[in-house]
Amino acid sequence: MHITLVDDSIPFDGYSASSRPLGGAEKAFASLPGALARLGHTVQVFNRCRWGMYIESAQWETFEGKKPLRTDVLIAFRKPALLEFVRHAGKRVFWHTGPGRLLDRPATRAMIDTHKPLLLLVAEAQARDFQAKGLAAGLLPMAVRSDYLGAEPRPQEPPRAVVTTHPAHGLDWLVDLWIGKIRPKAPDAELHIHSMMLASAMDGAEIDEALRPLAAKVKAAARHGVVVCRPQGDHLMAEALREARVHLYPGHADDMGCFTLMESQAAGCPAVIRPLGAAPERIKDGITGYASPDDDAFANLAAMLLTDRSVQQTMSAEARTAWKGRTWDGAAATLEGWLK
């Protein structure tokens, strides 16, 4: 099949995640073309990349590049208007990573009702928020890039918790909980916050006014073992996750991807989460992590994984086993079955 994927967001390509931090949704988009090409398909990708190139046997083109006259499958990423990127398409797919309710916006619904694409979802939580009304929908299997698979975890001393959440998605709450309830139970532990925005703030750069109080709080929390880290590409980020004892994930009701939570599970880092958005779908509660019912439970579970090596190692092994086969090749094979 000739498969065309199209995204209209930021500049990136299939190599980007190896050399610099990239959002989880963009990373997913960058991972699928090569996996489809390995199944024998002719794959073209159009996005805001700087120039055209072949990556993993898929042809990446600039957004303004020459479009095919027709394609067997058009996969539009996140923006419904992209369903019309190629006029003649045998099948159309709308790959949606946001809350399901956004699909019921009038303009979005009109576009979907007109083209009747396969709705490609990333979480069961999305399906609870909208009415499919006869449209076909598929849940893309969870998958991570190879950097997060295979290598052994090697938790460091002092024990380390890692957080990857967007600063506006519960980080203020987590820092307070760390200072007040987690660190007192694990007095040698460190909280490593991976955030480009906060790393820039620590270097003196201007950030959004609404986040300045949080930046000040995080800076003052250094005496409580809080460390701000600049996010890295996949190889180095995978190492950071393998060196941590626990991934603390505050979550957000609209977070349907929870992509870094998938990566930490694959790397063998147990998690403590709040049951928000799609986060509960990314762990096996009580086996590879914990979904905490309240603040006290979150703090107690986090402290336990920071201090009890036996529990942490057992959960780490279970997480790696659960995610061992969750590759993009597998996800592409599932999608291929729906497209035939």
Rank of each mutant, 00 (worst) to 15 (best):
S9E: 12
A30L: 03
G134L: 09
W60L: 10
Q59F: 06
I287A: 07
A28P: 01
Q312I: 00
H224S: 14
G170Q: 09
D113E: 15
K79E: 13
F298Y: 14
K79D: 14
I10N: 01
D295A: 15
D254H: 12
I207V: 09
A266V: 09
D72R: 11
L248Q: 04
A125G: 06
A319Y: 00
D172A: 12
E209P: 04
K27L: 12
F29W: 00
E56Q: 14
A279W: 05
S310Y: 06
G180E: 15
H166I: 05
G225I: 08
V144L: 07
R223K: 15
A123T: 05
L118Y: 12
P106S: 05
G24R: 05
I55F: 14
P117W: 06
W60K: 05
L261Q: 05
H169F: 11
I287N: 00
K27P: 02
L241P: 00
P213C: 10
A333N: 05
Q126G: 08
M304T: 12
E243I: 00
K340V: 14
C258S: 15
V227L: 11
V228C: 11
V311R: 12
A333W: 04
G14K: 12
V6P: 11
L139W: 02
P117E: 08
R128F: 13
A333S: 14
A279P: 03
L276H: 10
S310Q: 13
R109K: 14
G52D: 11
R50M: 10
D176A: 08
P68A: 10
G23S: 07
V162H: 08
H169G: 02
W338K: 10
R105E: 13
S19G: 09
Q312C: 15
T307Q: 06
E206M: 09
F85D: 03
P155D: 09
H247V: 01
A125H: 05
K66L: 15
T327W: 01
E26Y: 02
R326H: 05
L214Y: 03
T164W: 04
I10H: 03
L135Q: 15
L121Q: 06
F85M: 05
T288K: 00
D255H: 10
F63S: 02
V6Q: 02
M304A: 14
L69T: 13
H166M: 04
H96S: 13
G14S: 11
E239N: 13
W323T: 00
S18W: 07
L5I: 10
P167R: 07
